[in-house]
Amino acid sequence: MATANAQRARAAITIRDFQPVDYPAIVEISNRLFPDDLTTAEEEQWDDDHWDATRYVRKRRVALGPDGSVVGEGSFSHMPSSFHPQRFAMWIAVHPESQRMGVGTSLYEDLLEELRSFDAIALRTWVKESMTETAAWVERRGFKELMRAWESRLDLDTFDSGRFAPRAGPPSGIEFASLADELERNPGALRDLFDLDNAIAPDMPRIDPHTPMNFEMWTDWVLNSPGSEPRAIFLAKDGDRYVGLTELFKSEAQPDVLFTGLTGVLREYRGRGIAFAIKLRSLDWAKANGFREVRTWNSTLNAAMLGINMKLGFVKQSPWITYGKDLTQE
């Protein structure tokens, strides 16, 4: 009887292409599933509108219930920072009140069918460890765990940078500056930052090889996105050379929270306390400008960065699991 009911429920589901009118519905689903990681329709649409569709694929579908309302969404896309033409990220989200009705399965099978036209060979997806039912659902479909990343949060209301005064300043020969200041001084600041980002990123623990994102798309995100805040991106300089950085981005949905991008230092400058000091500078800025919390994500294999965050007072949350599926075995 249960199987028959599930089959009837699934038969009542319709899958169609995503339309702009669907943004409020998919945001509601996301915010119900992840109430600590809110988003807005404006943020979601900005990301889609500024996606470089000439180079990267992104496909979105929605599932409709019997009454025509959106009860789930699914998507797959290339990953610009680890690009391979046949490797894709997949994301499926189902409204809590429509789960266990075959919505996720219908979306998954629909996306898989379309992926065949791109000769896809591998998939990546992400599940929070605390979402045990979702993890089991993913694993039943042949996904294997590849890596874990801690989410960590710092409460700025209780953060006291004075405890780290001996390590607060840049080491000898190094100075710190915000991207906002550098944009006024250096016409090539964005290109130099882009090159620095791509020099550091390959050294981070990762599953797939790093590839540089399209420069125009990256620039748009850094300067013009809803999360842009050039005053909160700090650079370590040796003369005019950028040798380290830490990035913070805003959120429209959570205006009192900042999200960490990349923090790192060129290999030949490591071991001098630059990463700790520049991150401390960014946290001082965040607290002085009225933000309540800073969040960051680090691979469980990134012992150096995890050590810095723990010393600064970040508190670990439930980790995120990266799953992968080899489609060549399908």
Rank of each mutant, 00 (worst) to 15 (best):
P96R: 08
E44A: 13
P85K: 06
M101V: 00
R55V: 03
T54Y: 04
Y108T: 02
L33D: 07
T54R: 14
H84R: 11
R116W: 02
A89Y: 07
E28K: 04
A122G: 10
V70Y: 04
I121D: 11
V57A: 12
E28S: 07
E73C: 06
H84M: 03
S81R: 08
D119N: 14
M79K: 12
A89D: 13
D110S: 15
S81Q: 10
F88K: 04
A53H: 13
S98L: 01
E43Q: 14
T54A: 15
V62A: 09
E42V: 12
L33S: 10
P80Q: 05
E28W: 00
S69P: 02
R60M: 07
V70H: 08
V70L: 07
E109R: 13
V62S: 11
S69M: 04
S98R: 10
D110A: 13
G74T: 06
R58G: 01
R60C: 05
S30C: 04
D119P: 00
E43V: 07
E73Y: 10
G65V: 02
W46C: 04
F83N: 12
W46Y: 09
Q86N: 15
L112F: 11
V70N: 10
H95F: 01
L123P: 08
P66I: 04
A41F: 00
F76N: 11
S75P: 00
